[in-house]
Nucleic acid binder design. Sequence first.
DNA 1: GTAGGGTTAG
Length: 573
Amino acid sequence: MRACTKLISSTHPTLHFAHPTLESFIWNTLIRAHFQAGSRAELLTHTPLNVFLRMRFHRVKPDFHTFPFLLQSFNSPPHFQSGKQIHAQALLYGLANDPFVQTSLINMYSTCGNLMLARQVFDEISQPDLPSWNSIVNANVKVGLIDVARKVFDEMPERNVISWSCMINGYVSCGEYKEALALFREMQMVEANGVRPNEFTMSSVLSACGRLGALEHGKWIHAYIGKCGMEVGVVLGTSLIEMYAKCGIIERAKWVFDNMGPHNKDVMSWSAMISGLAMYGHAEECLELFTEMTSYGVRPNAVTFLGVLCACVHGGLVSEGKEYFRRMSEEFGITPLIQHYGCMVDLFGRAGLIQEARNLVNSMPMDPDVPVWGALLSGSRMHGDIETCEIALRKLIELDPTNSGAFVLLSNVYAKMGRWADVRHVRDLMEARGIKKVPGCSLVEVGGVLHEFFVGDDSHPETKEIYKMLDEIMKRLKMEGYVGNTNEVLLDLDEEGRELALSLHSEKLAIAFCFLKTSPGTPIRIVKNLRICSDCHVAIKVMSRVFDREIVVRDCNRFHHFKGGLCSCKEYW
DNA sequence: GTAGGGTTAG
């Protein structure tokens, strides 16, 4: 108890004499102090729960102020059992009807993944106030029930910035980026009612722009931030870096990064810039930045190393990658996560060091997951190591029987070797198991409007013109000596049919659309959900030369910057 | 004469 008073008098120097509620005040303050310290460092040996139990041991009655911080302490890491116990305690002391306690309960239950109990608490509130509504919206978001969240959101009697931010962020976190942007537009329409977006909102919206590759939208948001006089702090700065990097304007990302000043950047800002450069294949610059970061005394974390290793992968820097992987744990004390092992397997695989990749997979301390086997598969596929391919495939099917990617890759290997019977077999297997290929999809923004194209898509209003344009482009390419590389087509078609299937790839449709809609010389930016295939890669290279266009394609892996018949990546030839 | 609830990134 002496320690308590000492701690409190250091933060509240005026508290020197007794007060009727002083005792519970001291305990409550102590709970808060432990909660706040716990999230920063493990300096204190006790947890808020621990303090609460001692409080009860001393027969001090908790009051309204006791529970909120106590409940919050079970959010990270989530601790359902303790949370439930404390809920029972709040009921016991007749404090569970307090709106502050109820909101904390909703949050606690939802972060512990128990939506039912969160909902129960909410339903028992006769007149929920704004924070309770926001909490229940967010509770649905957290468990991924975005439609339910939206329904609750629409039912709310009133909404504030937080409600809107929660909902927009919800859409972003479940991958519905276009919905997020739509909701943001809706939000601006009610802006007249006094709801104005803040830093939180902008960060989510920027993230949506980045994922979509919607540069025009992103630029607009950037301008809007300036217009509102919003300060570009660490968080917004980092979001902007990420947005520009993901939209393919690495120079702009660097510009934002440099303008943040060396002392306003945290690990995340550095990491965002590092992974941005990595995605772009600028390996040397990326590694330099890492060195610069450490020279400013910013400690890299696991995410930073993910970016660094990723740079080594795209730059084909095997020995550097090995060195960073070693330093990561030895010098910085960071235990490699499964993603880091995935990077290393990818690094070895691409370099053709299949045996080394296999050794790593077999010796890693955790069970290899889908991305790890996937990296081994694509590496061995790249170098025609059928045996390793088959091993990886078997594991992939074991882990995720609905994963179409593995089947597609393996069938591509067979196709490359002309083993059409095996291709057929894989395809039958997929059919028998009801596995659908994830359809290729390309996104492009023209004049601030997003257009989406699927493989062989004919749903676009201007589909006729698009196909006509595509036809012309392909004719011109053929005149230039381009021959469709049909090795990667899954279907067992004759040569002409296969070539046709290739020409319908979504990125080609998107490019045809851009040729139709943009003036000559305008750079074309496309975002693709899958990896770009080698045929498209060749075709786009030729296009960039013949039509003198800069074409930037972001696939699920990295950027491909086509210019004058060349690509920035070293993955295809 | 003190204290409590709702949103962030990879």
